[in-house]
Amino acid sequence: MAYQKPVMKVEMKDVVLIKPSKSRPSSILFMSTLDNRPDLNCLCQTVHVYRSPPTHDDSKLSNQLLDPALVVKEALSKALLYYYPLAGRLVEHADGKLRMICSDAAEQGHGVPFIEAFANCELSSVHYLDGADNDIAKQLVFDLPTEDERGHQYPLVFKMTTFLCGGFTIGMGILHTVVDGSGASQFFRAIAELASGRSEPSVKPVWERERLVTSIISKQPLPCVVVIDKASATVSPFVPTTAITQVCFKVNSDLIRRLKSGLMKECDEDDHENLKECASSTRHVCVCSYVCLLTSSQVGR
């Protein structure tokens, strides 16, 4: 029997704006010089998958389970109290520089766009998004205009999709101009902490990007000359090529532990203190190191 791609349909509710849990004074925040690079002004989308909780025979206990959408929206509102710029609007000023406009929570149009959606299938039918194609992933992220009626950009958008099995996905879109990968991970962790019952996030953000504003001395591009010894340069047998393949890596906790253990052993042998410190710190660094090792081994073949 030929393989049939799963058909998934998603019904969406109207967009709602999630506001910070408490009001803050209106303010205009400066972006750093690096933030004003045009190539960074793009929306980065991630999809987080959560399986349904185990079923219970006790119907009363099942009825006491909280609605995940309500929990996430409440946690997001609390997180925006600390990450209030993400509830603002990114605006291009008259001088051509970007500014973050943070209005009072009571002002109309203020907040983070949030869509609640429902899928007509179970998460298992799409293999919990392991190796899922782009057509499925696109239905689980915010795919509506990310600007308000004045053309100002929303720095953050959410789409939460509930499946028939009770599991759900959270699609988060965030402007790279405002937040990098590490910051996005820190923000999502804050939402998870507040959803689990913490009174405040373990890491509180600091803006202070006005300290990173500098002037461009010359508008002319600087000459970039790199001298490479062709005899010693590493050449990959896979490039140049027009064949581009999309690959999904499944990384679980057990693999993370084994990768860290392997990196730590290599560090002990080579006495690389800096790498040893990185290997014991974050999952992101560990996975990136592993991918770099794989890339190096492929190029060297």
Rank of each mutant, 00 (worst) to 15 (best):
H56W: 10
V7P: 06
Q246I: 01
C102P: 10
A192W: 07
E277K: 00
H56G: 04
S185N: 07
Y84K: 04
C278N: 02
R258L: 01
D104L: 04
K265R: 14
E277Y: 10
P155L: 09
F30Y: 12
G166V: 06
S77V: 06
D148I: 01
E200D: 12
T177K: 03
C267Y: 01
A2N: 00
E107G: 03
G262E: 07
R37A: 10
P221F: 04
F163T: 01
L194D: 07
V213E: 15
A69M: 06
L81N: 12
E147G: 05
Y83P: 08
V239N: 14
L175Q: 08
E107I: 02
I217T: 13
C292M: 03
R89G: 08
S253C: 09
A69I: 13
G171F: 03
S196G: 07
N120T: 00
H127E: 09
I228Y: 09
S218T: 15
V49E: 06
Y154A: 06
T33L: 12
S218R: 15
V10Q: 14
L34V: 09
P201N: 09
I28Q: 15
L212G: 04
G300M: 14
L212I: 02
T46C: 14
T33N: 14
A94L: 08
E210D: 13
L65M: 06
F118K: 08
P221V: 01
T234G: 03
V285G: 00
T162P: 05
F163E: 04
A190R: 10
E266R: 00
S62H: 00
L76Y: 09
D130K: 11
V179W: 00
C121E: 02
F158T: 02
S199L: 12
P237L: 06
L80W: 09
T33M: 00
P6T: 01
F238P: 07
C278V: 09
A192F: 04
K138T: 11
D67I: 01
R37P: 04
Q4M: 00
R99P: 06
S296Q: 14
A184D: 05
G167V: 08
E269T: 10
S232T: 13
S202D: 12
I256H: 00
T55R: 08
K250V: 12
A106C: 11
P223W: 06
C278W: 02
L65G: 03
V225E: 13
H272C: 13
G96C: 07
V291R: 02
D14S: 12
L43I: 13
A69D: 13
I170M: 07
T161A: 02
L275S: 13
M172P: 15
A2E: 15
G151S: 11
